[in-house]
Every structure is written in C-alpha cells, then in structure tokens.
Amino acid sequence: MNLIISESKNSISLYIQKSFRKNGKSTSKVVKKLGTMEELLPQHNNSEEEVIAWEKKIAKKMMEEE
C-alpha cells in the first residue's frame, strides 16, 4: 500500500493506493480516498504531520489485514 498526496490548484487530496501486476504489467489502483487536507486538518489539531501519521497508520492496518 502506498500513500498518495495529490495536489491540485484548489486542494490537496489523500489516497491509499495498491500496486500490483496484471497480465505481466505493473499497475495501481486507488483503494481508499481518505479526504482532503482541508477536511482532515480540524480532526488532527490542524497539524499536517498528524494527518500524515494518521494516514500511514491506516495504510499499515489495511496492509496487515490483506
């Protein structure tokens, strides 16, 4: 599982992405959209570091369950 931070002109979105092989070719798929940084900051004391740490914990949990 990979943590993806996608920045656009208007927002920063956070995703969990899974990489795998399909027909011998490497590809990836977004497994879960966690939300935008704007939505998540109030839930994590307005700290980007806490949001990233939370995202890493979610990705690790999903990888262990798989």
Rank of each mutant, 00 (worst) to 15 (best):
E39Q: 14
N10A: 15
H44E: 08
S11Y: 07
E50H: 03
V31D: 06
N2G: 11
K56P: 11
L14E: 00
I5C: 08
V30M: 12
A59S: 02
V31Q: 08
L34V: 07
A59H: 00
W54P: 00
S13F: 05
V30S: 06
T36P: 01
K9M: 04
I16R: 00
T27K: 08
S13T: 08
I12Y: 00
M1N: 07
R21G: 09
K29I: 11
G35D: 04
K56N: 10
E7A: 15
Q17P: 07
I52M: 08
E55W: 05
K57V: 04
E49H: 07
L41R: 04
H44V: 06
S8C: 07
S6A: 08
K18H: 13
W54V: 12
L14D: 03
K29Q: 09
I5S: 03
N46E: 11
E55N: 09
E38M: 13
K33Q: 09
E39V: 14
S6K: 11
W54L: 03
E7N: 14
S28M: 03
M37A: 10
M62L: 11
E66Q: 04
V31I: 11
F20P: 09
L14C: 04
N23I: 03
K60E: 12
G35L: 04
I16D: 02
E64G: 13
E38D: 09
G35S: 01
E48R: 12
E50G: 02
M62W: 00
L34I: 14
K33C: 15
E48L: 12
E7P: 13
K25D: 10
